[in-house]
Amino acid sequence: MNQKYQIHPVLKVIFTFSLVILLSFSHNFAFVMTILVYTLFSLSLMKGNQILAILKISLWVSLFTFIILLPSNKYSSVMITVKVFTTVTTINMLPHSTKWSSITGAFKFFNIPDIFILVLDIAIKYIVMLGNHALQLIWALKLRSIGKNRDKYQSLSGIAGNLFIKSVEMSKEMYSAMECRGFNGKYITLEKKRLSMVDLLYMLIHIGIVILFFYIGKIVE
């Protein structure tokens, strides 16, 4: 549990993004491969079920990319596929390794307006719930209406409409509950935390990556 939240979330957000940006800029295959290896290494430090969840997404996305780009040319298909795989894996490691409240705290650190964070927060909370709900309703509908049924689509939109109205009401009540517990629409920044050794190491690695990016760039030019 503890290991999961070790690296300072602000550092994590900054360096995850910097990695994605460097990857996108780089046209050097050696650099891209280095980052790929580094990403795979970080991935290997995570738990099995997390690795599986992350790889499922990134492999699927890269496979799709590869097939799409196959008819174009060798450079595009290989380079872009590797970049896509590395980027998607890097991005997906962020929510799996940082607490959600820490990520919103980090957003606050970067001066993102509260209203954005609040909407994001509510959306995340409701996506799972709404998804499950919709699935249940669709099953119920399937069971009730056997065979072809012209009303089906009518009912489907009724379901979606109902779900929308209901969840708006629920979310309003949730907001009331938050207010009752002292929330006034403003998110609080993360508590100031001293940087640990792990944080420093993490910072060093990523600064090294930035230097590598420019160094390799120089050699090629």
Binding site: K99, D121, E173, S176
Partner: peptide
């Protein structure tokens, strides 16, 4: 205030 519907009252991870 403890709400009638606990679901709406619980919203953290």
């Amino acid at each position: 205030f403890v709400f009638q519907n606990s679901d709406t009252q619980l919203f953290c991870a």
